[in-house]
Design a protein around this nucleic acid. Structure first.
Length: 454
RNA sequence: GUGGUUGUAGCUCAGUUGGUUAGAGCGCCGGAUUGUGGUUCCGGAGGUCGCCGGUUCGAACCCGGUCUUCCACCCCA
């Protein structure tokens, strides 16, 4: 029985038009990365499960796609675990590889593995798909592309500043209105410490991150539910209600957390960062958002998130500083900072806003209509010369009906069509038709090449 | 992972309380135009109604399961 062809949930095919648009995004992102001195690397789609597991928290482990071992893996599995139907224990025995979940952890692995060949600070970019066994919904796919830029081996906040400029440049080129939100994990840690709940930092940050989504009351409820004391929640209130300019926010929060070591350091970092920001003109708004807590467990300093102003779709770019990601792979004391552009979400935003330029869909410039063998022989050398001159050109591969060939050219959005029949061959010329205006002219092959090569 | 939602022609969607042969628009193919596309006119093809099972004399319609879509939660690009 012929089954209906389909692809796995949360994955997508890309048509030529979609690819042209996606490449438009990738190309501009790439160009900006290179402008700032970053170099590309690639890593395999699959990594050893041991390098992936435990890096993204408990949730993350569940969202990893695991790859079954080759061969008769079931025979080697432990009988007791098989009988128990213990998925987690069983997984360890039948799977040792997984699809990468992001590009940062594989990059950390890469850095450690090639530490002797890399000169630090190492600035790399990486544009590849990642996979998450999440349930798909709007702007959320199981296979999607990330465009990562990271600097490892430098503590300087100049790197954070460079990243924000990259973000600004990318979205300026793409004509997407964005706001960059900045926070600092050290400030969050300082807050947790100052209110006497230092070890609850994760629960606290996750809860206050939802502030603009569920409101102050629900956040407080959630905090209490998670076991944060009433006293601590009370102390947190002034921080949640902070407003004003960046300087004002920093001044007020300093009064609360300035005494904690981490908090003090965090405030200092954010001040330095904003000094850099104010030293140049940026097209993008940069805002200190103390409720911004998103990000993976491994962030230790700055946290970034970029939102599209005109479309609601979650963040289209995010990142931060991680002080010791390479430590897990046996290389401690190397700090890194980076951001990741979500190409698929950027695509969705740009589609919704109709921001793709028409030229993004590159196509053939000229088509030779095929009239038959003799005419073919006449056209082929001319076609060759056009291509040598750098003109995207092609000939219809068979002598199909004129109407068929014209329709084909029209649908492929080809700008020019050349028709050569007996009359034209006798005169040694070709009939050049402009598909937009409908105008037709007899020109010599030399003229044709000259005209189209411009 | 939890709760909900969606699925009918290539695409967007109609389809009466369950009742003959399941429709439209767009697209596709052919013709008017044997050397001219995008406009117009005429004609044509295309469906196991997501899949499997059940109820019924009878199911696109009711019930169960499953897959898919989208949404909320969780989390995230």
């Amino acid at each position: 029985m012929a089954q209906k062809p389909s692809i796995p949930k949360g994955t997508r095919d890309f048509s030529p038009v979609e690819m042209a648009r996606r490449n438009y995004i990738f190309d501009t992102v790439k160009a900006v990365f290179q402008l700032y001195g970053f170099q590309p690397i690639e890593t395999p789609a699959m990594e050893n499960l041991s390098t992936l597991m435990g890096k993204y928290g408990e949730e993350g482990d569940k969202l990893l796609f695991k790859i079954l071992n080759s061969g008769d893996f079931a025979a080697k599995a432990n009988d007791a675990d098989l009988a128990d139907r213990n998925s987690i224990k069983l997984t360890n025995q039948i799977s040792e590889k997984g699809l990468r979940y992001d590009l940062t952890v594989p990059f950390a692995r890469f850095v450690v593995q090639y530490r002797n060949d890399i000169s630090f600070p190492f600035k790399r970019y990486q544009i590849q798909p990642v996979w998450r066994a999440d349930r798909p919904q709007k702007g959320r796919y199981r296979e999607f592309y990330q465009c990562d830029v990271d600097i490892v081996g430098s503590d300087s906040l100049l790197n954070e500043f460079e990243l924000v400029q990259i973000i600004s440049d990318v979205f300026t080129h793409l004509r997407v209105n964005t706001v960059v939100k900045i926070n600092n994990r050290k400030i969050l840690a300082g807050i947790a410490e100052a209110i006497g709940e230092a070890d609850r930092i994760v629960d606290i940050t996750v809860a206050i991150d939802k502030l603009d989504k569920i409101g102050l009351e629900k956040v407080n409820e959630e905090l209490l539910e998670k076991g944060v004391s009433q006293d601590a929640v009370d102390k947190l209130q002034p921080i949640l209600k902070l407003s004003g300019t960046t300087d004002e926010k920093l001044d007020s929060i300093e009064q609360v957390i300035g005494a904690t070591e981490l908090g003090k350091k965090g405030i200092e970092e954010v001040r330095t960062f904003f000094n850099y920001i104010s030293s140049v003109e940026l097209n993008t708004e940069v805002e200190l958002d103390l409720t911004l807590a998103r990000g993976l467990n491994y962030y230790t300093g700055a946290i970034f998130e970029v939102k599209a102003k005109d479309v609601q779709i979650g963040s289209i770019c995010g990142g931060g500083r991680y002080d010791d990601l390479t430590g897990i792979f046996g290389m401690p004391g190397v700090s890194g900072v980076g951001v990741s552009f979500g190409a698929d979400r950027i695509y969705d935003v740009m589609t919704q806003l109709e921001l793709f330029p028409e030229e993004a869909v590159a196509s053939t410039k000229l088509l030779f209509v095929n009239f038959g063998e003799k005419e073919e022989a006449f056209c082929l050398p001319i076609l060759r010369r056009l291509r040598e001159a750098g003109v995207n050109a092609e000939i219809f591969p068979e002598a199909a009906k004129m109407k068929k060939q014209m329709t084909w050219a029209d649908r492929k959005n080809i700008a020019w069509v050349v028709m050569v029949g007996e009359d034209e061959m006798n005169q040694g010329k070709v009939n050049l038709k402009n598909m937009k205006t409908g105008d037709q002219n007899l020109v010599s092959p030399e003229e044709l090449v000259r005209l189209l090569a411009e």
